[in-house]
Structure formats: structure tokens, C-alpha cells
Design a protein around this nucleic acid. Structure first.
Lengths: 253, 253
DNA sequence: TGTTGACTCTTACGTTACGGCAGGCTTTAT
DNA sequence: ATAAAGCCTGCCGTAACGTAAGAGTCAACA
């Protein structure tokens, strides 16, 4: 009933070295072994291993897992709650880092990359300022989001505004190149994610709002026209890609 | 013009050992040193150190930082873009882990912690099902969010439903205890964050929607009544705390 | 001038979760 | 019997330092 180390490793999908390691630190020592010292893993050992791997997936350290496995009196719930807190903190840190990186990129682009514009003149920034759709946007996304978004725009320096436009256009161009491919493809979805993140720099868009925005691209021909300047059919393509993106993201949560 | 290691460390807010380490790995070797071997850091060294610490904050490895610092031809922009991608991936992983942990906690609570209920009978789950506010919710949050939320509820097993109610009540109780303190305090904000995360398990609430929901607690007396069962003034308190939470979160993004 | 105390130096082990050898048995297959 | 496959126990390397240990240096005070 007992299997040797290679089989155990293959069953669990880990390396032999890892099993050696777990034995070494006393996390999982197989119950039996041959006279010659070969490790023999029983079914029970394998069950324990599954437990270990489960907690490992949750990001627990081997030390903590050892505590959890070895003492049945150990409060798993409390451990999980605490662990959750730590994960949330880590995520906040990561979010902070991402924002800073993005800001740095924008800053660098502002100082270096300001020559080859004017290629795509449509959808310029000034039009965004005297936004004819403002009233409608207010109704759809709420006053606060709109005000917030506008405040950010007005606070930008001319340099920043140029960057903003350029960034936006770059995304449109990338999407235009993809508009004859599948909106569900990995590549399309990555491009759409860029767009989602770009919008979220301005205000806060929920996934639902994002999806709704995409529908507006098709329903309101003022939008359609503007967007299709970058390539015919782009609005339709974006609408589909945005819906798919929003649905997928929500499923995963 | 040159300073010794202790002063350099204090200026930069790092440890002496860290500077030793950076010297050791060739990341930052001070330009001068005394005959007796004391390291002497010039202003230029300190500038370089600032650069190093900046990239470190962004989560770059010292190895990468060394490449960036040492070769001016190194493409910083590309490095930043790549780094950003990695951070996004990490964040997705973390999100996954958080969801799994939360699911595990719920599952465990279902198996163990199902005795001491009935203490707080108000706001039961059945009422949530034949939700009298559904129509209103549809108008406010959009059809999709509502349908999604309801679908999740119906899919739950009875056991899960009980858990759901209990979790919700637990959060209300915690908030009720705090309702006479400041809604902006760290403690209150943590409790409100729990509430935000709880709601986001059901559907997807943007921060604006969250804030709006808080206002509804006060404006619509049907909500106010239900919530105040847990303690008078709780609805008002939650409304304030939710607004503060939403505003703070958005500032940080 | 001797001594004390603050400061500095190098060396080196500890941390996390293994990967990747090397050198040497044991088992299995031909 | 002999080769091939499988197994064993070390031991070094990784990232970014923390934490001593043992020893030399510098400035000030008696």
C-alpha cells in the first residue's frame, strides 16, 4: 500500500527534492521506510500532503503549516483570519506600488517621449474638456465621478494633458490594430485591460460601469464616430471586448 | 564633504548593515575611504542611494537596480513596463488567494460554528430573498448587478445561507458596538472595510456605489429601521463611515 | 599618556523553500 | 552479472539583509 518517493512526488505534482525537504524539516516524515532507508509513503501520508499543499497554495509558510498540521487543537479559523488580514495588507502595498510605477512611467514619458504626435488628430484633448456628453455622463455615472474626473483633468499641466491624450491615443491605436481579431483573445483582452486601467486613473469605474460604457460606444453614434476614426468597426469591437473583460473579471471574484 | 557610514545611514533612513551589503554586492561602493578603511560617502553617493531606494520601493530587485544604475543606456521605460506587468500578475495571484481563504473560512464556519444564532433575528435572510427594495435597487445599481447578486443567493445551500446571514449579522454587531465612536477612526474604518468586502462577495460595488448605498441607509427609512435594530443611530453612523471609507480609498488610487 | 566609549571594520551564520549537484548505496531489468 | 534506474545524505546557492562576534580606530577626558 505504500509508494516510493518518485511516485508520491508525481502524484502530488511536486519534486522529490521538496519531499526530502519536508522530511528534513519535520513537516512530513513518511510513516514507514525500508531497511535500506527508502522512504515509503502511505495513503495517510498522501492525505496529509494534500493538506499541506492546500495551505501552501493559500500562501502559508511551512512553519505555520507545521503548527496547523501537528496540533489539532490549533485554531485553524483564527489562523485563517489572521492570514487573510496579512494578504489584504500585502495587496494594498502592491496596489500602491502599481500606482507609483504607473505615475513614474507617465512622468518619464512626459520628459522624453514628446515628439512624434499629431499623427492621430482625432479625439483631441480639448474636446474632452468641453465635453458635449457631460450632462449624459452625469446621469449615467453619477455627479461625483464626473466632477472628480474633471477636476483631475483641469489640474493637469499642459504637458500632462498632452501625455494624457497621447496615452489614450496609443491605446486606441493598439486596439484598432486588433479590431479584426477575436475580442475574446488573450491579446485583445490585454489591450482592453490597459483601457480599463487607464480609465481608472481618471475616476473609479466599476466593472459594471465599464461594461455599460462599452455599450454606449455602439448605441450613441457620437461616440461611435469618434472612436471609429481610429479604424472602422473599432467601437463595436471595443464594446464586445469590454463586456467580455468585465464578465470574466467578475467571475474570478 | 564626505560623511561616515552612520550619518549616511541615518540620512537615508536605512541600516548600516544595508550599506555594508550594498557595498558588498557592488551596488553602491562609496567613492572614497580613509586609510583605516572607513567608508566615506560623498553627496553624489547619496544621490545614487536615493535612486536605489526609489527603485527599491517600486519592488525592483537589487540585481535589476544595479543594471539600471550602472548602465545609462539601459532602457528604464521598458524595465518599468515589464515590472508593472509582473506586479499586476502578482496582484491577481493575491486576489485569488484572498478569495480562496475567504471561501475556506466560510466553509469551516459552516461545519463548526452553527449553534449560537437567533440572537439577532432582525434582517433575516428570507427577507432578503423577497426583497421589497428590489425594484429600487434595480434602478440604482443596474439590472445586471441585481440579477447577479440574486443568482448567487439562490445558488447557496441552506447551510450557506445561514452562514451568510450570520456573517452579515456579525458585521452589524461589530459596527453597532462602535456607533458612538468616530466613524473616521481606524477601528471604525476597518469594520466598514469588512462590510465593503462582504458586499463585494455578492456583486461588484464600486466605491461610489458603496458611498451611495450608505446615503440610502439614512434617506430611506425602511433601511434605517432595519439597521437600527442593531442599535439606534447605527444607520447614520454607517452612512458617515462609508462615505469616509470611499473617499479615502479613492484618494489613494 | 592612558583609558574609555563611540564608531567602524570584516567574517560568518540564520532566514525561506527549495534547486541542483556529487558521491555512493540499492533495486530492477536484461 | 552488469548496467540502468532509483534512492540516499550532505552541501552550496538563492535575496536582502539581521544579528552577533571579535578586533581595530578615533576623539575626548583625566
Amino acid at each position: 500500500m505504500a509508494i516510493k518517493i518518485k511516485e508520491a512526488a508525481e502524484l502530488a505534482g511536486i519534486s522529490i527534492r521538496t519531499l526530502h525537504h519536508y522530511d528534513h524539516i519535520g513537516l512530513l516524515s513518511p510513516t514507514h521506510s525500508t531497511e535500506s532507508g527508502y522512504r515509503l509513503y502511505t495513503d495517510k501520508d498522501m492525505e496529509t500532503l494534500q493538506q499541506i499543499l492546500f495551505f501552501k497554495e493559500l500562501g502559508f509558510s511551512l512553519k505555520r503549516i507545521k503548527e496547523i498540521i501537528n496540533s489539532p487543537s490549533f485554531d485553524r479559523r483564527e489562523a485563517l483570519q489572521l492570514h487573510r488580514k496579512r494578504l489584504l495588507e500585502k495587496r494594498d502595498q502592491l496596489d500602491q506600488m502599481i500606482v507609483t510605477v504607473e505615475k513614474t512611467i507617465q512622468h518619464m514619458e512626459g520628459e522624453i517621449h514628446m515628439s512624434n504626435k499629431e499623427k492621430f488628430e482625432g479625439f483631441r484633448f480639448d474636446e474632452f474638456k468641453k465635453d458635449p456628453y457631460e450632462q449624459e455622463a452625469r446621469e449615467r455615472w453619477g455627479d461625483q465621478a464626473v466632477d472628480e474626473s474633471k477636476a483631475k483633468v483641469y489640474k493637469m499641466s499642459p504637458q500632462e494633458q498632452r501625455n494624457f491624450t497621447e496615452n489614450m491615443n496609443e491605446i486606441y491605436r493598439a486596439l484598432a490594430d486588433l479590431r479584426h481579431t477575436s475580442p475574446a483573445s488573450e491579446e485583445s483582452q490585454k489591450a482592453i485591460e490597459e483601457w480599463y486601467r487607464f480609465l481608472n486613473k481618471m475616476g473609479s469605474y466599476s466593472l459594471d460601469a465599464f461594461k455599460g460604457l462599452g455599450q454606449m460606444y455602439v448605441q450613441d453614434e457620437r461616440f461611435t464616430k469618434n472612436i471609429d476614426q481610429f479604424g472602422e468597426g473599432l467601437a463595436q469591437f471595443m464594446c464586445e471586448a469590454m463586456a467580455i473583460y468585465a464578465d470574466n473579471k467578475k467571475k474570478r471574484k
